[in-house]
Design a protein around this nucleic acid. Structure first.
Lengths: 217, 217
DNA sequence: AGGCGTCTTTTTGCATGCAACCTGCTTTCG
DNA sequence: CGAAAGCAGGTTGCATGCAAAAAGACGCCT
């Protein structure tokens, strides 16, 4: 069985086929994926409820994040990720901690590949979410990370950021291993804060250069 | 224009027409609301992505919360509401604070009507969310409150809980008015904690008595 | 030449039909 | 008598057709 329309569209957005601000036409998507309009429609509506798509008049466009939305998103993300770390410190099984550690060790081998590093980073954070053993938290953080996927660039491409991020990941895992919830939470908070700072720097540098920003009209 | 299928189904669940565990059949809903299966289908899928509905094999049933899920939900809720209070203390306009105060004052007049009190309670919390001026937070808290709507009973029906809740609301608004974010956050955390405790007591009392619990199979 | 109105075209929203599938039951064979 | 296979009813998933609405293009009038 091949992937369903929902996943196909989501992947297309992830891969940058459709960029923030682009209009999504049902019949076009249907033809591209070789299905009828019905499953496409359903997928689009699901994505709309997850705020991946926004309405512009009657039609749907890929949502985009302006500066304010980005700031708001990072606030929520920091809080939820910190909570996840705190809970993980309490509830993670030793095996889960080892998996996290292995991820970090392996990631050190691909510091020169920002794309791979970005995927590895997502996996790492997702693993922490799971270690919280709280499915609502996992779900909410999933939503947050989805919205972040609307950002075209990864901040891990910035020189030196990869190494720093891995060190921060290590600090988080250490705190979780020791069962120190508060330390884990603040380590994660600091990590998100650095990531946010890096992104802001990145955006400031690209200003006027890149065209994919698709500001809100 | 009349309400769309999505709202109709959501209201039906809210009003208890469909209870946790009930199976939702497309054709049945379509007939009930006088529309075709297509909009019903779309609505169902949207509700599924919001975890209001769960899949049981091929068909959809109204989601239900077991004890663990309830506990997990309250943890996330406490954290997000506390964050909302903290942000509200920083960003709320004086007008917003006055609206909150008015709500409390008016609510004191309907302490004898648990139903009305419950609705008022939702409005109050929603107003705090809005006062945070963070739309992601508003969105996430919306989801949390939706899931809580799956609980049949309101804990505000417990004798004395209404008064206590209003006093707690007052403490929250006071902290927000003073711009004391930490106080607001911990006041809200305490409020949620009490609400959770009350609910647990309530559920313990009903155990074996009520049939609407629809435990996970 | 510019603005306004109308007509055409595109696109969405909904209804319905059809095929695949799952469920539960009956029937038949070991 | 039990188990397995097949049959029937019901339900979901997808495709397509049609109507209504919006967007765009064109021409007309000022």
């Amino acid at each position: 069985m091949q992937k369903d329309a929902y996943t196909l569209i989501l992947d297309a957005i992830d891969e940058g086929v459709y960029r923030p601000g682009d209009r999504l036409v049902e019949s076009e998507l249907a033809e591209r994926f070789g299905v009828s309009r019905t499953p496409v429609r359903e997928a689009l509506q699901r994505l709309e409820t997850q705020q991946m798509l926004a309405r512009d008049g009657r039609s749907l466009i890929v949502a985009s994040l302006d500066h304010n939305q980005l700031a708001e998103l990072y606030i929520v993300r920091a809080e939820l990720e910190a909570l996840a770390a705190q809970l993980a410190a309490k509830h993670a099984a030793p095996e889960e901690v080892r998996v996290l550690q292995n991820m970090i060790d392996e990631d050190r081998g691909q510091l020169d590949d920002p794309e791979a590093l970005s995927r590895a980073n997502r996996r790492f954070h997702h693993q922490i979410h799971l270690a919280s053993h709280n499915r609502y938290l996992v779900q909410q953080l999933d939503l947050v990370h989805r919205s972040m996927a609307l950002l075209a660039t990864t901040s891990l491409a910035v020189k030196g950021r990869g190494e720093a991020a891995l060190d921060e990941h290590q600090a988080i895992v250490d705190a979780i291993r020791e069962g120190n919830g508060d330390a884990a939470a603040s380590a994660l908070r600091a990590h998100i804060s650095r990531a946010f700072e890096t992104r802001l720097t990145l955006d400031a540098a690209h200003h006027g250069t890149a065209g994919h920003w698709a500001e809100a009209l």
